[in-house]
Nucleic acid binder design. Structure first.
Lengths: 244, 244
DNA sequence: CGCCTTATTGATTGGTTTCAAGACACGTGG
DNA sequence: CCACGTGTCTTGAAACCAATCAATAAGGCG
Protein backbone atom coordinates (compact mmCIF):
# COMPACT_ATOMS: atom_id res chain seq x y z
CA UNK A 1 0.00 0.00 0.00
CA UNK A 2 2.59 2.53 1.08
CA UNK A 3 4.59 2.16 -2.12
CA UNK A 4 1.82 3.71 -4.20
CA UNK A 5 1.49 6.74 -1.94
CA UNK A 6 2.27 9.76 -4.11
CA UNK A 7 3.16 11.65 -0.94
CA UNK A 8 5.89 9.15 -0.12
CA UNK A 9 7.00 9.26 -3.73
CA UNK A 10 7.22 13.04 -3.72
CA UNK A 11 9.05 13.28 -0.40
CA UNK A 12 11.44 10.47 -1.33
CA UNK A 13 12.49 12.57 -4.28
CA UNK A 14 14.42 14.76 -1.86
CA UNK A 15 15.89 12.34 0.67
CA UNK A 16 15.68 8.60 1.39
CA UNK A 17 13.06 8.36 4.12
CA UNK A 18 13.91 6.45 7.27
CA UNK A 19 11.46 3.98 8.81
CA UNK A 20 10.24 6.38 11.44
CA UNK A 21 9.47 8.93 8.75
CA UNK A 22 7.57 6.33 6.71
CA UNK A 23 5.58 5.26 9.76
CA UNK A 24 4.67 8.87 10.49
CA UNK A 25 3.45 9.40 6.95
CA UNK A 26 1.42 6.19 6.88
CA UNK A 27 -0.57 7.42 9.84
CA UNK A 28 -1.53 10.53 7.82
CA UNK A 29 -3.08 8.57 4.95
CA UNK A 30 -5.50 6.27 6.75
CA UNK A 31 -8.77 7.76 5.50
CA UNK A 32 -9.82 8.67 1.96
CA UNK A 33 -12.65 10.89 0.71
CA UNK A 34 -13.97 11.94 -2.73
CA UNK A 35 -15.08 15.38 -3.87
CA UNK A 36 -16.65 16.37 -7.18
CA UNK A 37 -15.37 19.09 -9.47
CA UNK A 38 -16.35 22.49 -8.12
CA UNK A 39 -16.86 21.31 -4.53
CA UNK A 40 -15.74 23.70 -1.82
CA UNK A 41 -14.05 21.49 0.74
CA UNK A 42 -13.74 24.29 3.24
CA UNK A 43 -14.46 28.02 3.36
CA UNK A 44 -12.57 31.00 4.72
CA UNK A 45 -13.18 31.28 8.46
CA UNK A 46 -13.94 27.58 8.98
CA UNK A 47 -12.21 25.96 11.92
CA UNK A 48 -9.19 24.11 10.66
CA UNK A 49 -8.58 20.88 12.44
CA UNK A 50 -7.74 18.89 9.30
CA UNK A 51 -5.04 18.83 6.71
CA UNK A 52 -5.32 16.82 3.49
CA UNK A 53 -3.03 14.67 1.40
CA UNK A 54 -3.98 14.89 -2.29
CA UNK A 55 -4.31 11.44 -3.84
CA UNK A 56 -5.84 12.41 -7.17
CA UNK A 57 -6.87 15.54 -9.08
CA UNK A 58 -6.10 19.26 -8.92
CA UNK A 59 -7.46 21.72 -6.37
CA UNK A 60 -6.80 25.33 -5.54
CA UNK A 61 -7.04 27.67 -2.56
CA UNK A 62 -8.40 31.14 -3.13
CA UNK A 63 -9.34 34.28 -1.26
CA UNK A 64 -12.28 36.53 -2.07
CA UNK A 65 -11.52 40.22 -2.06
CA UNK A 66 -13.84 43.03 -1.15
CA UNK A 67 -14.01 44.30 -4.74
CA UNK A 68 -15.49 40.96 -5.81
CA UNK A 69 -12.36 39.67 -7.47
CA UNK A 70 -10.42 36.79 -6.07
CA UNK A 71 -6.82 35.65 -5.79
CA UNK A 72 -5.86 32.01 -6.14
CA UNK A 73 -3.00 31.60 -3.69
CA UNK A 74 -2.02 28.00 -4.28
CA UNK A 75 -2.65 25.16 -6.73
CA UNK A 76 -2.58 21.68 -5.24
CA UNK A 77 -1.48 18.56 -7.13
CA UNK A 78 -1.42 14.87 -6.24
CA UNK A 79 1.22 14.20 -3.58
CA UNK A 80 0.85 17.66 -2.02
CA UNK A 81 -0.21 18.24 1.55
CA UNK A 82 -2.92 20.91 1.77
CA UNK A 83 -3.24 23.15 4.79
CA UNK A 84 0.23 23.81 6.15
CA UNK A 85 0.01 27.56 5.69
CA UNK A 86 -3.06 27.58 7.94
CA UNK A 87 -1.84 25.45 10.82
CA UNK A 88 -0.60 28.52 12.64
CA UNK A 89 -4.18 29.83 12.74
CA UNK A 90 -7.43 28.75 14.28
CA UNK A 91 -9.41 29.55 11.15
CA UNK A 92 -8.94 28.91 7.47
CA UNK A 93 -7.47 31.83 5.60
CA UNK A 94 -8.66 30.64 2.19
CA UNK A 95 -11.31 28.60 0.40
CA UNK A 96 -10.30 25.15 -0.84
CA UNK A 97 -11.98 24.16 -4.10
CA UNK A 98 -11.71 21.10 -6.31
CA UNK A 99 -10.69 22.07 -9.85
CA UNK A 100 -11.82 18.62 -11.00
CA UNK A 101 -12.95 15.38 -9.34
CA UNK A 102 -10.51 14.59 -6.53
CA UNK A 103 -9.61 12.07 -3.81
CA UNK A 104 -8.20 13.39 -0.54
CA UNK A 105 -6.88 11.89 2.70
CA UNK A 106 -7.85 14.14 5.61
CA UNK A 107 -5.86 13.96 8.85
CA UNK A 108 -6.06 15.99 12.05
CA UNK A 109 -3.54 18.77 12.67
CA UNK A 110 -2.83 17.26 16.08
CA UNK A 111 -1.21 14.27 14.35
CA UNK A 112 1.72 16.52 13.52
CA UNK A 113 3.03 16.54 17.07
CA UNK A 114 4.17 12.93 16.72
CA UNK A 115 6.18 13.99 13.65
CA UNK A 116 8.14 16.46 15.73
CA UNK A 117 8.72 14.11 18.64
CA UNK A 118 9.21 10.79 16.78
CA UNK A 119 10.46 11.63 13.29
CA UNK A 120 13.01 14.47 13.33
CA UNK A 121 14.06 13.68 9.78
CA UNK A 122 10.54 14.12 8.46
CA UNK A 123 10.13 17.25 10.59
CA UNK A 124 13.28 18.72 9.06
CA UNK A 125 12.11 17.80 5.56
CA UNK A 126 8.69 19.40 6.05
CA UNK A 127 10.41 22.44 7.49
CA UNK A 128 12.77 22.64 4.53
CA UNK A 129 9.87 22.41 2.09
CA UNK A 130 7.96 25.09 4.01
CA UNK A 131 10.84 27.55 3.92
CA UNK A 132 11.58 26.70 0.30
CA UNK A 133 8.02 27.70 -0.42
CA UNK A 134 8.87 31.18 0.74
CA UNK A 135 11.48 31.41 -2.01
CA UNK A 136 9.03 30.05 -4.55
CA UNK A 137 6.51 32.63 -3.45
CA UNK A 138 9.13 35.38 -3.64
CA UNK A 139 9.85 34.36 -7.21
CA UNK A 140 6.17 34.46 -7.92
CA UNK A 141 5.89 37.86 -6.29
CA UNK A 142 8.46 39.16 -8.74
CA UNK A 143 6.44 37.72 -11.59
CA UNK A 144 3.24 39.37 -10.38
CA UNK A 145 4.87 42.62 -9.37
CA UNK A 146 7.21 43.24 -12.24
CA UNK A 147 6.33 41.23 -15.31
CA UNK A 148 4.07 41.77 -18.31
CA UNK A 149 1.09 39.54 -18.93
CA UNK A 150 2.94 37.38 -21.48
CA UNK A 151 5.84 36.87 -19.12
CA UNK A 152 3.49 35.90 -16.31
CA UNK A 153 1.84 33.27 -18.47
CA UNK A 154 5.27 31.92 -19.36
CA UNK A 155 6.18 31.83 -15.70
CA UNK A 156 2.96 30.08 -14.81
CA UNK A 157 3.49 27.31 -17.35
CA UNK A 158 7.13 26.72 -16.42
CA UNK A 159 6.32 26.60 -12.73
CA UNK A 160 3.60 24.04 -13.37
CA UNK A 161 5.98 21.88 -15.39
CA UNK A 162 8.67 22.05 -12.72
CA UNK A 163 6.18 20.96 -10.07
CA UNK A 164 4.70 18.15 -12.11
CA UNK A 165 8.14 16.82 -12.98
CA UNK A 166 8.80 15.96 -9.32
CA UNK A 167 6.11 13.30 -9.38
CA UNK A 168 6.54 12.35 -13.04
CA UNK A 169 10.13 12.63 -14.16
CA UNK A 170 9.49 11.59 -17.76
CA UNK A 171 6.80 14.19 -18.31
CA UNK A 172 6.24 15.23 -21.89
CA UNK A 173 6.00 18.87 -22.95
CA UNK A 174 2.21 18.63 -22.96
CA UNK A 175 0.52 19.91 -19.81
CA UNK A 176 -3.04 18.95 -19.06
CA UNK A 177 -4.54 22.15 -17.67
CA UNK A 178 -7.82 21.68 -15.78
CA UNK A 179 -8.20 25.41 -15.13
CA UNK A 180 -10.16 27.87 -17.21
CA UNK A 181 -8.80 31.27 -18.19
CA UNK A 182 -10.71 33.04 -15.43
CA UNK A 183 -9.02 30.79 -12.89
CA UNK A 184 -5.62 31.38 -14.47
CA UNK A 185 -6.28 35.11 -14.35
CA UNK A 186 -7.04 34.78 -10.64
CA UNK A 187 -3.68 33.10 -10.15
CA UNK A 188 -1.74 35.71 -12.08
CA UNK A 189 -3.53 38.89 -11.08
CA UNK A 190 -4.81 39.53 -14.60
CA UNK A 191 -8.24 39.48 -16.24
CA UNK A 192 -9.58 36.53 -18.17
CA UNK A 193 -9.63 38.73 -21.26
CA UNK A 194 -5.95 39.48 -21.06
CA UNK A 195 -5.06 35.88 -20.32
CA UNK A 196 -6.77 35.00 -23.57
CA UNK A 197 -4.88 37.69 -25.49
CA UNK A 198 -1.55 36.70 -23.98
CA UNK A 199 -2.04 33.00 -24.68
CA UNK A 200 -2.94 33.86 -28.25
CA UNK A 201 0.16 36.03 -28.57
CA UNK A 202 2.45 33.29 -27.21
CA UNK A 203 0.90 30.83 -29.61
CA UNK A 204 1.27 33.21 -32.56
CA UNK A 205 4.98 33.49 -31.72
CA UNK A 206 5.30 29.71 -31.78
CA UNK A 207 6.25 29.30 -28.11
CA UNK A 208 3.24 27.18 -27.18
CA UNK A 209 0.36 25.35 -28.80
CA UNK A 210 -3.05 24.79 -27.25
CA UNK A 211 -5.51 22.01 -27.73
CA UNK A 212 -8.76 21.65 -25.75
CA UNK A 213 -7.62 21.78 -22.14
CA UNK A 214 -3.94 21.12 -22.78
CA UNK A 215 -0.93 23.29 -23.51
CA UNK A 216 2.12 22.06 -25.37
CA UNK A 217 5.35 23.92 -24.64
CA UNK A 218 7.19 24.16 -27.96
CA UNK A 219 10.12 26.38 -27.00
CA UNK A 220 10.90 25.86 -23.35
CA UNK A 221 14.22 27.75 -23.43
CA UNK A 222 12.59 30.78 -24.97
CA UNK A 223 9.93 30.75 -22.30
CA UNK A 224 12.62 30.44 -19.64
CA UNK A 225 14.55 33.43 -20.91
CA UNK A 226 11.35 35.40 -21.38
CA UNK A 227 10.63 35.36 -17.65
CA UNK A 228 14.05 34.42 -16.22
CA UNK A 229 12.64 31.25 -14.71
CA UNK A 230 14.62 29.32 -12.10
CA UNK A 231 13.47 25.84 -11.07
CA UNK A 232 13.36 25.80 -7.28
CA UNK A 233 11.49 22.50 -7.13
CA UNK A 234 13.97 19.97 -8.33
CA UNK A 235 16.51 19.75 -5.52
CA UNK A 236 16.90 20.85 -1.94
CA UNK A 237 19.90 20.84 0.37
CA UNK A 238 19.42 18.12 2.99
CA UNK A 239 22.99 18.12 4.29
CA UNK A 240 22.00 19.82 7.56
CA UNK A 241 19.24 17.32 8.39
CA UNK A 242 19.58 15.39 11.65
CA UNK A 243 20.90 11.94 10.87
CA UNK A 244 19.24 8.82 12.15
CA UNK B 1 22.45 38.04 28.82
CA UNK B 2 19.74 35.82 27.40
CA UNK B 3 16.92 37.93 28.79
CA UNK B 4 17.81 40.86 26.54
CA UNK B 5 17.79 38.70 23.42
CA UNK B 6 15.16 40.20 21.12
CA UNK B 7 14.89 36.79 19.46
CA UNK B 8 13.83 35.17 22.73
CA UNK B 9 11.50 38.07 23.35
CA UNK B 10 9.87 37.71 19.95
CA UNK B 11 9.51 33.91 20.16
CA UNK B 12 8.21 34.06 23.75
CA UNK B 13 5.41 36.24 22.44
CA UNK B 14 3.87 33.10 20.95
CA UNK B 15 4.51 30.40 23.52
CA UNK B 16 6.39 30.07 26.84
CA UNK B 17 9.72 28.58 25.85
CA UNK B 18 10.93 25.49 27.67
CA UNK B 19 14.51 25.20 28.88
CA UNK B 20 15.62 23.05 25.97
CA UNK B 21 14.27 25.65 23.55
CA UNK B 22 16.10 28.43 25.40
CA UNK B 23 19.34 26.47 25.37
CA UNK B 24 19.01 25.87 21.66
CA UNK B 25 18.47 29.56 20.99
CA UNK B 26 21.38 30.64 23.18
CA UNK B 27 23.71 28.60 21.05
CA UNK B 28 22.58 30.60 17.99
CA UNK B 29 23.55 33.99 19.45
CA UNK B 30 27.16 33.46 20.49
CA UNK B 31 28.86 35.74 17.99
CA UNK B 32 28.06 39.34 17.03
CA UNK B 33 29.12 41.41 14.02
CA UNK B 34 28.53 45.00 12.83
CA UNK B 35 27.72 46.21 9.34
CA UNK B 36 27.42 49.79 8.11
CA UNK B 37 24.40 51.20 6.26
CA UNK B 38 24.45 50.08 2.64
CA UNK B 39 26.70 47.07 3.26
CA UNK B 40 25.86 43.97 1.24
CA UNK B 41 26.24 41.13 3.72
CA UNK B 42 25.90 38.49 1.05
CA UNK B 43 25.13 38.37 -2.67
CA UNK B 44 22.91 36.17 -4.80
CA UNK B 45 24.72 32.93 -5.60
CA UNK B 46 26.99 33.03 -2.54
CA UNK B 47 27.27 29.80 -0.63
CA UNK B 48 24.95 29.93 2.33
CA UNK B 49 26.33 28.30 5.40
CA UNK B 50 25.19 31.02 7.81
CA UNK B 51 21.94 32.39 9.10
CA UNK B 52 21.72 35.60 11.11
CA UNK B 53 19.82 36.81 14.14
CA UNK B 54 19.14 40.55 13.88
CA UNK B 55 20.16 42.38 17.07
CA UNK B 56 19.81 45.96 15.86
CA UNK B 57 18.76 47.86 12.74
CA UNK B 58 16.75 47.13 9.59
CA UNK B 59 17.92 45.12 6.60
CA UNK B 60 16.30 43.84 3.45
CA UNK B 61 16.75 41.02 0.96
CA UNK B 62 16.36 41.80 -2.72
CA UNK B 63 16.67 40.19 -6.12
CA UNK B 64 17.98 41.91 -9.23
CA UNK B 65 15.92 41.33 -12.34
CA UNK B 66 17.15 41.17 -15.90
CA UNK B 67 15.45 44.44 -16.85
CA UNK B 68 17.54 46.25 -14.25
CA UNK B 69 14.78 46.66 -11.72
CA UNK B 70 14.78 44.86 -8.44
CA UNK B 71 12.30 43.31 -6.04
CA UNK B 72 12.74 43.54 -2.30
CA UNK B 73 11.42 40.21 -1.03
CA UNK B 74 11.75 40.68 2.71
CA UNK B 75 12.43 43.36 5.29
CA UNK B 76 14.27 42.22 8.41
CA UNK B 77 13.79 43.77 11.84
CA UNK B 78 15.50 43.21 15.22
CA UNK B 79 14.54 39.80 16.60
CA UNK B 80 14.12 38.25 13.16
CA UNK B 81 16.16 35.32 11.91
CA UNK B 82 17.50 35.94 8.41
CA UNK B 83 18.06 33.12 5.99
CA UNK B 84 15.40 30.49 6.57
CA UNK B 85 13.98 30.70 3.06
CA UNK B 86 17.41 29.83 1.70
CA UNK B 87 18.30 26.87 3.89
CA UNK B 88 16.75 24.49 1.37
CA UNK B 89 19.30 25.67 -1.21
CA UNK B 90 23.06 25.57 -1.56
CA UNK B 91 23.24 29.15 -2.81
CA UNK B 92 21.69 32.42 -1.74
CA UNK B 93 18.62 33.36 -3.71
CA UNK B 94 18.80 37.05 -2.79
CA UNK B 95 21.13 39.85 -1.76
CA UNK B 96 21.11 40.87 1.90
CA UNK B 97 21.66 44.59 2.44
CA UNK B 98 21.77 46.76 5.56
CA UNK B 99 19.20 49.54 5.34
CA UNK B 100 21.02 51.30 8.19
CA UNK B 101 23.84 50.45 10.61
CA UNK B 102 23.15 46.98 12.03
CA UNK B 103 24.39 44.31 14.46
CA UNK B 104 23.93 40.66 13.51
CA UNK B 105 24.62 37.28 15.13
CA UNK B 106 25.69 34.81 12.44
CA UNK B 107 25.33 31.08 13.11
CA UNK B 108 25.92 28.06 10.88
CA UNK B 109 22.98 26.31 9.23
CA UNK B 110 24.26 23.01 10.59
CA UNK B 111 23.37 24.21 14.12
CA UNK B 112 19.72 23.67 13.23
CA UNK B 113 19.96 19.89 13.41
CA UNK B 114 20.25 20.05 17.20
CA UNK B 115 16.99 22.02 17.26
CA UNK B 116 15.17 19.17 15.53
CA UNK B 117 16.69 16.44 17.69
CA UNK B 118 16.83 18.20 21.09
CA UNK B 119 14.13 20.87 21.07
CA UNK B 120 10.92 19.65 19.41
CA UNK B 121 8.98 22.58 20.84
CA UNK B 122 11.28 25.13 19.21
CA UNK B 123 11.24 23.09 16.00
CA UNK B 124 7.45 23.18 15.97
CA UNK B 125 7.45 26.92 16.67
CA UNK B 126 9.89 27.67 13.87
CA UNK B 127 7.83 25.45 11.59
CA UNK B 128 4.65 27.27 12.55
CA UNK B 129 6.26 30.63 11.86
CA UNK B 130 7.57 29.40 8.52
CA UNK B 131 4.18 28.19 7.35
CA UNK B 132 2.50 31.31 8.71
CA UNK B 133 4.84 33.26 6.50
CA UNK B 134 3.23 31.60 3.53
CA UNK B 135 -0.08 33.12 4.54
CA UNK B 136 1.54 36.51 5.06
CA UNK B 137 3.09 36.25 1.63
CA UNK B 138 -0.24 35.23 0.11
CA UNK B 139 -1.80 38.32 1.62
CA UNK B 140 1.00 40.36 0.19
CA UNK B 141 0.55 38.72 -3.19
CA UNK B 142 -3.05 39.89 -3.21
CA UNK B 143 -1.88 43.39 -2.42
CA UNK B 144 0.65 43.37 -5.25
CA UNK B 145 -1.58 41.57 -7.71
CA UNK B 146 -4.87 43.29 -7.16
CA UNK B 147 -4.53 46.60 -5.38
CA UNK B 148 -3.98 50.17 -6.49
CA UNK B 149 -0.86 52.04 -5.51
CA UNK B 150 -2.56 53.85 -2.62
CA UNK B 151 -3.91 50.61 -1.24
CA UNK B 152 -0.50 48.99 -1.46
CA UNK B 153 1.07 51.83 0.50
CA UNK B 154 -1.63 51.44 3.13
CA UNK B 155 -0.97 47.72 3.28
CA UNK B 156 2.76 48.27 3.57
CA UNK B 157 2.40 50.63 6.53
CA UNK B 158 -0.08 48.42 8.39
CA UNK B 159 2.05 45.34 7.88
CA UNK B 160 5.06 47.16 9.26
CA UNK B 161 3.12 48.28 12.31
CA UNK B 162 1.81 44.77 12.96
CA UNK B 163 5.33 43.37 12.80
CA UNK B 164 6.88 46.02 14.99
CA UNK B 165 4.15 45.61 17.61
CA UNK B 166 5.30 42.06 18.35
CA UNK B 167 8.56 43.34 19.77
CA UNK B 168 7.18 46.62 21.10
CA UNK B 169 3.64 46.28 22.31
CA UNK B 170 3.21 49.92 23.32
CA UNK B 171 4.27 51.24 19.96
CA UNK B 172 2.99 54.68 19.07
CA UNK B 173 1.38 55.48 15.72
CA UNK B 174 4.66 56.96 14.49
CA UNK B 175 6.81 54.60 12.41
CA UNK B 176 10.45 55.35 11.86
CA UNK B 177 11.01 54.40 8.24
CA UNK B 178 14.66 53.96 7.28
CA UNK B 179 13.84 53.23 3.64
CA UNK B 180 13.71 55.70 0.80
CA UNK B 181 10.90 55.81 -1.73
CA UNK B 182 12.89 53.89 -4.32
CA UNK B 183 13.30 51.06 -1.82
CA UNK B 184 9.61 51.16 -0.94
CA UNK B 185 8.77 51.01 -4.63
CA UNK B 186 10.97 47.92 -4.92
CA UNK B 187 8.96 46.30 -2.14
CA UNK B 188 5.60 47.13 -3.64
CA UNK B 189 6.27 46.66 -7.34
CA UNK B 190 5.74 50.33 -8.13
CA UNK B 191 8.00 53.16 -9.29
CA UNK B 192 9.54 55.65 -6.91
CA UNK B 193 7.58 58.36 -8.71
CA UNK B 194 4.27 56.73 -8.00
CA UNK B 195 5.18 55.97 -4.40
CA UNK B 196 5.72 59.69 -3.97
CA UNK B 197 2.39 60.52 -5.59
CA UNK B 198 0.54 57.94 -3.52
CA UNK B 199 2.09 59.07 -0.25
CA UNK B 200 1.15 62.63 -1.07
CA UNK B 201 -2.41 61.57 -1.86
CA UNK B 202 -2.76 59.65 1.43
CA UNK B 203 -1.42 62.64 3.30
CA UNK B 204 -3.76 65.03 1.47
CA UNK B 205 -6.67 62.83 2.57
CA UNK B 206 -5.52 63.06 6.18
CA UNK B 207 -4.77 59.35 6.64
CA UNK B 208 -1.07 59.80 7.35
CA UNK B 209 1.46 62.52 8.07
CA UNK B 210 5.11 62.44 7.13
CA UNK B 211 8.08 64.05 8.81
CA UNK B 212 11.68 63.48 7.74
CA UNK B 213 12.05 59.71 7.78
CA UNK B 214 8.96 58.94 9.84
CA UNK B 215 5.33 58.29 9.05
CA UNK B 216 2.52 58.94 11.49
CA UNK B 217 -0.63 56.91 10.96
CA UNK B 218 -3.54 59.23 11.71
CA UNK B 219 -6.49 57.07 10.70
CA UNK B 220 -5.57 53.43 11.21
CA UNK B 221 -9.10 52.10 10.72
CA UNK B 222 -9.49 53.92 7.43
CA UNK B 223 -6.21 52.48 6.23
CA UNK B 224 -7.36 49.01 7.33
CA UNK B 225 -10.62 49.23 5.41
CA UNK B 226 -8.84 50.74 2.42
CA UNK B 227 -6.80 47.58 1.87
CA UNK B 228 -8.77 45.02 3.91
CA UNK B 229 -5.82 44.41 6.17
CA UNK B 230 -5.75 41.39 8.49
CA UNK B 231 -3.06 41.15 11.17
CA UNK B 232 -1.51 37.70 10.86
CA UNK B 233 1.38 38.51 13.16
CA UNK B 234 -0.21 38.86 16.54
CA UNK B 235 -1.21 35.32 17.47
CA UNK B 236 -0.58 31.77 16.32
CA UNK B 237 -2.24 28.50 17.28
CA UNK B 238 0.21 26.48 19.37
CA UNK B 239 -2.29 23.90 20.62
CA UNK B 240 -0.88 21.15 18.40
CA UNK B 241 2.72 21.62 19.60
CA UNK B 242 4.41 18.62 21.22
CA UNK B 243 4.31 19.08 24.98
CA UNK B 244 7.39 18.81 27.12
C1' DC C 1 -32.10 22.37 -30.90
C1' DG C 2 -31.30 25.46 -27.07
C1' DC C 3 -28.72 26.46 -22.96
C1' DC C 4 -24.66 27.31 -20.52
C1' DT C 5 -19.90 27.87 -19.93
C1' DT C 6 -15.75 29.33 -21.97
C1' DA C 7 -12.88 31.75 -25.21
C1' DT C 8 -12.14 35.42 -28.55
C1' DT C 9 -12.03 40.03 -30.47
C1' DG C 10 -12.78 45.16 -30.72
C1' DA C 11 -13.17 49.86 -28.85
C1' DT C 12 -12.54 52.70 -25.09
C1' DT C 13 -10.83 54.02 -20.63
C1' DG C 14 -7.65 54.61 -16.95
C1' DG C 15 -3.92 53.81 -13.63
C1' DT C 16 0.90 53.54 -13.79
C1' DT C 17 5.24 54.12 -16.13
C1' DT C 18 8.47 56.75 -18.36
C1' DC C 19 10.99 60.78 -19.24
C1' DA C 20 12.34 65.08 -17.69
C1' DA C 21 12.84 69.09 -14.95
C1' DG C 22 12.89 71.34 -10.64
C1' DA C 23 12.94 71.72 -5.39
C1' DC C 24 14.95 70.77 -1.12
C1' DA C 25 18.13 69.20 2.46
C1' DC C 26 22.65 68.09 3.64
C1' DG C 27 27.60 67.85 3.67
C1' DT C 28 32.02 69.39 1.82
C1' DG C 29 35.52 72.35 0.54
C1' DG C 30 37.03 76.81 -0.85
C1' DC D 1 29.62 82.36 4.26
C1' DC D 2 28.86 80.74 -0.23
C1' DA D 3 29.39 77.47 -4.21
C1' DC D 4 28.80 72.98 -5.42
C1' DG D 5 27.61 68.11 -5.61
C1' DT D 6 24.73 64.42 -4.17
C1' DG D 7 20.79 62.02 -2.77
C1' DT D 8 15.98 62.28 -2.21
C1' DC D 9 11.52 63.83 -3.14
C1' DT D 10 8.13 66.30 -6.05
C1' DT D 11 5.66 67.62 -10.13
C1' DG D 12 4.22 67.69 -15.08
C1' DA D 13 3.33 65.79 -19.76
C1' DA D 14 3.14 61.95 -22.76
C1' DA D 15 2.95 57.08 -23.74
C1' DC D 16 1.50 52.49 -22.75
C1' DC D 17 -0.19 48.23 -20.87
C1' DA D 18 -3.94 46.08 -19.00
C1' DA D 19 -8.80 46.76 -17.38
C1' DT D 20 -13.36 47.42 -18.64
C1' DC D 21 -17.37 47.06 -21.39
C1' DA D 22 -19.61 44.70 -24.91
C1' DA D 23 -20.56 41.69 -28.68
C1' DT D 24 -19.64 37.38 -31.00
C1' DA D 25 -17.97 32.66 -31.55
C1' DA D 26 -17.22 27.97 -30.18
C1' DG D 27 -18.03 23.78 -27.54
C1' DG D 28 -20.25 20.48 -24.49
C1' DC D 29 -24.41 18.52 -22.92
C1' DG D 30 -29.19 17.54 -21.74
Amino acid sequence: MSHDSCLVQKLSHYVPLCQRSLDSIACLEREERDYARGAEIHAEGDGNTNLYVVKHGWLYSYVDMKDGRRQIVEIHHPGDIIGFPDIAFNERTSVLKAAEDVYLCPFPKKDLDQVFTNAPQLAALLFALAVRNQVIMSDFLQAIGRMSARERIAYFLLDLMARLRIANKQMSTVIRLPLNQTEISDVLGLTNVYVSRSFTALQKDGLIRRENGSVEVLEEEKLVSLCDFVDRHNRIDTSWFPRQ
